[in-house]
Nucleic acid binder design. Structure first.
Length: 464
RNA sequence: GGCGCCGUGGCGGAGUGGCUACGCAGCGGCCUGCAAAGCCGUUUACUCCGGUUCGAGUCCGGACGGCGCCUCCA
């Protein structure tokens, strides 16, 4: 084990991860708002934090990963109204899709996936505390956070307070004067015409604002002052700034120690289908989305994880079909290499490359550099092709990426394919190469590639 | 306009004050009926201009270019 450092947005530098009691590490990552099916961009944080959990556990920590589901939100009301369905039904449907789509990534589930709609009591209690402490105020059923009462406001996103505005939804003229200060943001929104879900609070009927939902859900499951808060870097301001401010003012403590932010997926306006140069963040509002389940169905989860792991999590990442094809080739390289490894430990001389892999992960979870070490290990393994090489190191490394399946024995070809292979061998023996090649093409159409080796032909499953 | 990030070889993408990242693709060779896989060899780098330094893609300043946030967004 060694020191693990992670980039902290607040300080702008790498900070050592300091675990809590008994080596416990709590991670809270902002999950999706469920008003439509998620796109591959939404999957990046899911993958990054799921893999981070694996790595931290490997390093001896007990990890609790929480990824929330925002199921009460303006966007959900709007989408449900457009579809003429109850907003709660739409949210439930899309939450189910979200779980199925991320299940297909094969990385397991987070330890907790709280719903905003099931956290209303803690949310109301948190708002009440803020009002009691003078950091929030109720006006005509709305409740607003008094931004200027927090001297540290802006410290996460490092913005000067006078250069900010909360924007929020278009404010009707009748509401324009509700806020004491334009900077103040809503903790509770009074029920409005057309909204079909409502909860009761001391200051009136309504529903929570987005930011307070996360503060409450995180505290419920991880307490205050947990180790890592994550999310996309588009959430730094205002979402995470507001989350941090709410908890700071209500609890006199910081919500999280390290604020991690992953970079955006960049994609062309076509959604990455046409090979155009990526030129903008993938986003539902831009219409340039590639849906997660479509990408997984087309290229497989191995390739998508390989793509994500191929770049540092903080960097923006280009996404398109060409890059998925390249990721698929990397997957094939690993699987081809793993074939032929024997059970057991790897040669000690190859240990430094395994160690380099983990050292890279300890240095701000640099999966790209780690993958470089993994491929160097593979190259070294091939140079030793005349001696048995244990798969131990490779399985250990691949497990960090959720790709250990690449080192496992693939399924055997079916009887039909075996029959075709035997027919091809017969044709080869008869030097009827035209027929042999035809049978090889036929096997390829079945998804199996023929590789003739010293010990006879072998059938190898073609990646995706 | 403000804040932040980035600019590496055909493409993707790490890293580092002096030593081949890595992957994909290309080229030559070995192997092979031909392929595939693999091996050997090999081509192509650090946006530009100043500065610091014995030495800078690597640090500092500037220019140009790109991206994110500043309104919902992973």
């Amino acid at each position: 084990m060694g020191t693990i450092r992670l980039h902290d947005t607040r300080s702008g530098e790498l900070r050592e991860l300091v675990a809590g009691a008994d080596g416990h590490v709590g991670i809270y990552a902002c999950g999706p708002t469920v008003y439509a099916r998620i796109h591959v961009g939404n999957a990046r944080p899911f993958v990054v934090y799921s893999l981070l959990k694996r790595f931290l556990e490997h390093e001896g920590h007990a990890v609790t990963l929480v990824i929330n589901i925002t199921d009460v939100n303006d966007k959900i009301y709007a989408a449900a109204a457009a579809l003429q369905v109850p907003s709660a039904d739409l949210a439930a449907e899309m939450a189910a899709h979200y779980k199925a789509d991320t299940d297909a990534l094969g990385l397991g589930r987070p330890d907790a996936e709280p719903l905003a709609s099931e956290t209303i009591e803690p949310i109301v209690a948190l708002i009440a505390d803020l009002i009691d402490r003078g950091h929030a105020y109720a006006v005509d059923g709305d409740v607003y956070f008094r931004v200027r009462s927090d001297a540290c406001y802006g410290s996460l996103s490092r913005r000067a307070i006078d250069e900010m505005n909360q924007g929020e939804e278009p404010v009707p003229p009748s509401h324009a004067d509700r806020k004491e200060d334009p900077l103040d943001f809503a903790l509770w929104k009074a029920h409005k015409e057309g909204e079909d879900t409502v909860w009761f609070a001391p200051w009136g009927r309504g529903r929570p604002g987005w930011h307070i939902e996360c503060s409450a859900m995180a505290e419920q499951l991880l307490g205050v002052g947990f180790e890592i808060h994550g999310g996309g870097n588009d959430l730094v301001f205002p979402h995470h700034e507001n989350e941090a401010a709410q908890t700071r003012m209500a609890r006199d403590a910081e919500l999280a120690q390290i604020w991690m932010h992953n970079g955006m997926l960049q994609v062309a306006a076509s959604g990455g289908k046409m090979g155009d140069d990526p030129d903008a963040k993938m986003g539902k509002s831009l219409g340039n989305v590639a849906l997660l389940h479509e990408v997984v169905e087309e290229f497989g989860r191995n390739a998508l994880i390989m793509l994500f792991a191929g770049a540092h999590y903080r960097q923006p990442m280009a996404f398109d079909d060409m890059r998925m094809m390249e990721a698929l080739a990397r997957v094939a390289r690993v699987r081809d290499s793993a074939r032929g490894l024997v059970a057991g430990e790897s040669p000690p001389e190859m240990r430094p490359l395994r160690d380099a892999f983990f050292a890279a992960l300890r240095d701000d979870f640099n999966t790209a550099a780690a993958l470089g070490a993994l491929f160097e290990w593979i190259n070294e393994r091939h140079k030793r092709r005349d001696e048995p090489v244990g798969r131990g190191d490779l399985v250990e490394m691949l497990s960090m990426l959720g790709l250990q399946n690449l080192a496992e024995h693939g399924s055997e070809a079916g009887a039909e394919e075996q029959e075709l292979l035997e027919q091809r061998e017969a044709a080869r023996s008869a030097r009827n190469y035209a027929e042999a090649d035809r049978l090889r093409d036929e096997l390829r159409a079945h998804g199996w590639e023929v590789r003739d080796g010293p010990d006879g032909p072998e059938l190898v499953r073609i990646e995706q």
